[in-house]
Amino acid sequence: MTAVSIAGVSKVFNAGRPDEVTALSDVDLTVDSGQFVSLIGPSGCGKSTLLRLVADLIDPTSGTVTVAGKPAAQARRDQEYGIAFQQAGLFEWRTVRRNVELPLELRKLPRAARKEKAEEMLALVGLADFAGHYPAQLSGGMQQRVAIARALAVHPPLLLMDEPFGALDEMTRERLQGELLQICAKTGTSTVFVTHSISEAVFLSDKVVVMSARPGRITATIDIDLPGRDEAARQSPAYFEHVTAVRKALRA
């Protein structure tokens, strides 16, 4: 079963106008069910665009996007995925807890169940004490963690994450990486993960997809095979080999 299948997808913004941009050109990508795939590449190479295509937030100029065996639009309507995007996108008039509850509310979960779930997720990202705060009272990194909690709350079969740990310190980042891997392994979630960090991509992924800019396309796909996903793995020779391979691919 494939979670995501992208075939011959191109995306041109503002076609026919002077500010025309070819964000993606002829991209093919498959994410197997339960697989963790990272997208890495220079700024502006179309990583976010690719993610938004999968989420059916924009339409491809050509090519097809299939999610969970259905066209992307249908998959969106069936809520086959959860997203945590580059900007946290929290609702400033809702408390942190009520922000996490939002997708649960839309799925008509009863109030008590919502509250319990939201609190569990907030504890997971280390924000249990901030449930009653408003987003404007949090730091950028804390806001990002709320957005992650919100994305995880509904246990979507597919997670789309765009630099979710971008604003976090190294320690928090590593802890959340561990938590994320555990959740994904436990629930069999497939993940498409955008990052700028080579080590993060290698540590998290089953497959790292390297992209290049202008026009955005996939230049290399590197399968990662680590002995485990713990602290020891971060020190293993296999880990460093993969880091080097990804770095080479990025330079090419």
Binding site: A55, Q79, L106
Partner: peptide, 23 residues
């Protein structure tokens, strides 16, 4: 970002109105 989030939840116009636009 907010509008896209609601779209990703498959929320229709009324729900986007009630949960996002009005507040």
């Amino acid at each position: 970002a907010g509008v896209e989030l609601m779209r990703s939840y498959a929320a229709g116009w009324w729900r986007t109105y009630g949960k996002l636009r009005l507040p």
